[in-house]
Design a binder for these strands. Structure first.
Length: 231
DNA sequence: AATCTTACCAACCGCTTTAAA
DNA sequence: GTTTAAAGCGGTTGGTAAGAT
């Protein structure tokens, strides 16, 4: 069978967006909203693939996007959620208003491995966190990883050269086991809200009402955080 | 000042999921 | 129930700015 291409590649622009293209896309979406991405480029007079338009809008042009560096709180949320969800960037982005999955993914793949290792250790095992490793967030020339290294090390602790671990007594095994067993009175067949697994109680950041196991409803989704609200 | 290296980010590609016919 | 198109997602790549030599 095979899939038809998502757009006519022969007649589409690729690469960086021009200011004019941005303006056209923004103007069109302001006037018509986010409709059918496939037909949008033609309707908006853009020589772009619908996918490309969607990506540009979602990752760059949306008015509610927050630009600039990640705050410590955002950093913390990313680390916590990544420990539980893995590379589910869209889910993580859903908990960080104004941030995109692409942005978080890029952040994780560049800053993630070294800095997150320390911060995750501090968050998950405060008693065993080693302050000295904080310097890993500012890699020295000797310890800095290349671009490829940062990419490939996103799932490793990275850095230590053969034979000489930089922090030999630090256990960086960040693997996350199964969630803690629910209290005895919690029916195990019901979904348990992620926020509960993060240690939050009903009403804290999460609007799902349940299964913070004392809750009574079976909803499993959680609302995006309000501006300035963090897990 | 020129060149090289590193880090960052925007964008593309291909696969999966979802919804409609 | 099956097929197909569209949307969404995650991995990867390429360009470039900034810093180092």
């Amino acid at each position: 069978m095979g899939r038809s291409p998502c757009c006519e590649k022969a007649h589409t622009n690729k690469g960086a967006w021009t200011k004019e293209e941005d303006e056209r896309l923004v103007a069109y979406i302001r006037a018509h909203g986010e409709g059918c991405w496939r037909s949008l480029p033609k309707a908006a007079g853009l020589l772009r693939c619908g996918k490309s338009c969607r990506l540009r809008w979602m990752n760059y042009l949306r008015p509610d996007l927050k630009r600039g560096n990640f705050t410590d709180d955002e950093d913390e949320v990313i680390i916590r959620l990544h420990a539980i969800l893995g590379n589910k960037w869209s889910l993580i982005a859903g908990q960080l208003p104004g941030r995109t999955d692409n942005e978080i993914k890029n952040y994780w793949n560049t800053h993630g491995s070294a800095a997150a290792a320390h911060r995750a250790a501090a968050l998950l095992h405060p008693a065993t966190a080693v302050p000295a490793l904080a310097s890993a967030a500012k890699p020295s020339p000797a310890a800095s990883s290349s671009d490829d290294g940062a990419r490939s090390s996103s799932s490793t602790s990275g850095g230590a050269s053969a034979g000489e671990p930089r922090c030999p007594d630090l256990n960086l095994d960040l693997s996350v086991g199964p969630p803690p067993p629910p209290p005895a009175d919690t029916p195990t067949s019901r979904p348990v809200c992620l926020c509960y697994r993060l240690g939050l109680r009903a009403g804290e950041a999460c609007g799902c009402q349940a299964d913070h196991p004392s809750g009574t409803q079976g909803l499993r989704y959680f609302r995006p955080l309000e501006q300035g609200q963090f897990i």
